[in-house]
Design a protein around this nucleic acid. Structure first.
Lengths: 129, 129
DNA sequence: GTCCTCGTACGATAGGCATCGTAGTACGGC
DNA sequence: GCCGTACTACGATGCCTATCGTACGAGGAC
């Protein structure tokens, strides 16, 4: 699957067999990371989003850290594309390993947001940076 | 549901509305706690198991800590019954808040155990791709 | 070639947490 | 009343982690 120029920089990912449920749950338990995963899921299975696409209320360093946790736990796949680093949800792998888990978590997150009125207008906290 | 005297000691539990997805995921992300939850689930919805029923490779202090995390995150309900402290899975509440989530996690855990040969001594068989 | 943008690496820091040991409380049996 | 069992509370400890700031490398724009 040599798509275009993968650059010389490669990133280490766990194989499907190396993905652990505990690590996935831990990765999803963080609000920032859950937010990233939800956004990736909403974009579609094959959508690649750059790190800079996400506007998180933390610095770039911290964002890098969160993406690393997601990648090393097997939740997302990351590839370099020019100066940008694209992230894709590993939905297929996760669905094979843990059928229904990702959908349940995503649905639960959406439901909770709806219940708490988080998706509306009030932001409660300024996204100052 | 006669259940005799509930003792005077009461334990604080989050109401259904107070249960947060992040807290539940965090609670389930720990191997010890996931083990407890799985055992509770296998016993049936209304089964009460005492803390001492669980044989965990940690001290009683640590066991108490884990049960507290599970209780405060809303995953289990605990009541005193004599000197024993019984634990019950809050399956109904969780199913209302996050439909399918608990089942997905339990199924995923069972599947992973099976895949890794945790239940017995068979050498890590299916190394798919 | 030079500069700018994107993201990384490294160090530092503060807080959380899993773990232990010990001392203490509640309840039931004798 | 006394003791044993079941569990708790508290303090200590060491690791993990979420966060930041700064310095740095890679790749594209001009």
């Amino acid at each position: 699957m040599t798509t275009a120029a993968p650059s010389s920089r490669a990133l280490a990912h766990p194989t499907r067999d190396e993905i652990r449920l505990e690590s996935v749950l831990h990765a999803l338990a963080d609000p920032m990371r859950l937010r990233v995963v939800r956004e990736l899921a909403e974009e579609g299975e094959n959508s690649e989003l750059s790190c800079s696409h996400f506007v998180l209320p933390v610095t770039k360093s911290t964002t890098t850290h969160h993406f690393r946790v997601l990648r090393e736990s097997g939740v997302i796949r990351q590839i370099y594309r020019g100066t940008a680093k694209m992230s894709v949800l590993r939905r297929a792998d996760l669905d094979v390993l843990f059928p229904g888990l990702l959908d349940s978590v995503l649905a639960a997150a959406a439901r909770q947001d709806d219940r708490l009125g988080d998706g509306g207008s009030e932001g409660a906290g300024g996204l100052g940076g």
